[in-house]
């Protein structure tokens, strides 16, 4: 059997290759913004390390409900952080499910299963995005 064939030129594979790099760097940037903002909002004195980590990667007041944030209404819960969470979820989920697609297609090669599994990964991605954005907007 042959290896996974990739057409040269500007196509889906190339677009996702670029997107994987950009979204990876964007996740670093979003994590840095989350962490520095948490410090600016007073995490130095109010928050322990696990809470800071949860805020860094998913700044949701629900996410740190079992941790020691004294009062989430003090600048910790507003529309800005909801937009940040939606960005993190979108970049993270798309990066991750595209990675799953690449691994799956590396294993199976060009076969009849490929469109089926690609569709399955696509449905999982949509379901994950809807569930995550619902959690963000409902909390």
């Amino acid at each position: 059997m042959s290896a996974r064939t990739v057409q040269p030129g500007f196509n889906f594979e190339y677009l996702m290759w670029i997107f994987t790099r950009i979204s990876g760097l964007a996740l670093f940037l979003l994590a840095i913004i989350g962490m520095t903002s948490a410090f600016a909002l007073g995490a130095r004195t109010q928050v322990d390390l696990p809470t800071l980590m949860r805020w860094t990667f998913f700044p949701n007041p629900n996410h740190v409900v079992n941790s020691n944030i004294p009062d989430v209404t003090l600048g910790w819960a507003n529309g800005f952080w909801q937009i940040m969470q939606i960005l993190i979820v979108f970049f993270g989920a798309t990066h991750g499910f595209n990675g799953l697609r690449v691994v799956v297609e590396d294993f199976i090669g060009p076969s009849l299963w490929r469109p089926f599994l690609r569709g399955l990964v696509f449905l999982l991605w949509i379901f994950f995005l809807i569930a995550a954005i619902y959690v963000i907007l409902a909390s």
Binding site: N62, H63, V89, G92, G96, F97, G99, L100, V103, L124, F128, A131, A132, Y134, V135, A138, S139
Partner: peptide
């Protein structure tokens, strides 16, 4: 590690969805 993170984050978000709802 990428697949592990996808499993972890995916389960975590779905679990949080059902915990919340």
């Amino acid at each position: 590690t990428g697949l592990a993170m996808l499993t972890f984050v995916g389960l975590h978000v779905i679990a949080s969805f059902f915990m919340q709802q």
